[in-house]
Computed example of a mutant assay.
Amino acid sequence: MNTIKNLSLLVMLTMMLSSCGVLLCPPIQERAQSIKAGMTSQEVRNILGSNFYLSFHDNSETWEYRTIPLYHDYSVIKIEFKEGQVVRMDSYMEVTPVIEEKPKKAEK
Rank of each mutant, 00 (worst) to 15 (best):
L13F: 14
E100P: 09
A37S: 12
V95S: 12
P26W: 11
Y74A: 02
M16K: 04
G49K: 01
N51L: 04
N46F: 01
L17Q: 03
Q42T: 13
T67F: 08
K36C: 01
F56W: 09
I47M: 10
R66T: 15
D90W: 10
T40H: 04
Y74D: 10
M1W: 07
I28C: 08
S50H: 00
G38R: 02
M16R: 05
T14H: 06
G38H: 07
I77G: 02
T96S: 11
M12G: 07
M1S: 14
K82D: 05
L17F: 10
V98W: 09
L17W: 06
L54P: 06
K5W: 10
E43F: 03
L70Q: 14
Y65S: 02
Y53V: 04
R31I: 05
L70G: 06
L13S: 15
I47G: 00
L23S: 11
Q33N: 08
Y65N: 09
S91I: 08
I77W: 06
E64D: 05
I35S: 10
T96V: 15
I28M: 12
P69F: 10
Q85I: 15
Q42R: 07
Y71E: 12
D90K: 11
I28Y: 02
I77R: 00
R31D: 07
M89F: 08
L7G: 01
V86D: 00
D73M: 09
M12P: 00
L17K: 00
S19M: 10
G49R: 05
Y53F: 12
I35P: 07
C25I: 09
K108S: 04
T96K: 07
C20A: 13
G49D: 01
M39C: 10
I68E: 13
I35Y: 09
S8W: 06
M1G: 14
P69I: 09
N59C: 04
R66H: 11
L23K: 02
A32Y: 00
I99S: 14
A37F: 10
C25D: 11
V95Y: 02
H72Q: 15
V76L: 05
M39P: 02
K105A: 12
K108W: 06
E101K: 13
S34G: 01
M93N: 12
F52E: 14
D58G: 01
S41I: 15
V95R: 08
P69E: 00
M89A: 09
K5V: 15
S34E: 03
E107R: 01
S41Y: 01
V44A: 07
E100A: 15
A37R: 07
R88S: 13
V22I: 15
E43A: 06
Y53L: 12
T14L: 11
E61T: 14
K36H: 04
K78C: 04
L9R: 08
C20P: 03
D90Q: 12
V86R: 11
E100M: 15
S75A: 11
P103N: 05
K36Q: 14
S55W: 00
S75I: 13
K102Y: 07
R88W: 09
S91L: 03
R45I: 13
K5D: 13
Y71M: 14
K104E: 15
V87G: 02
S75Q: 06
N51R: 11
N46E: 08
E30R: 01
A106T: 12
G84F: 03
Y71V: 15
M93E: 10
K78W: 00
L54H: 11
I35T: 10
V44G: 05
L10G: 04
W63D: 06
A32H: 04
G49W: 06
S18C: 07
Q29F: 02
A106Y: 06
S50R: 03
K108R: 00
V86T: 08
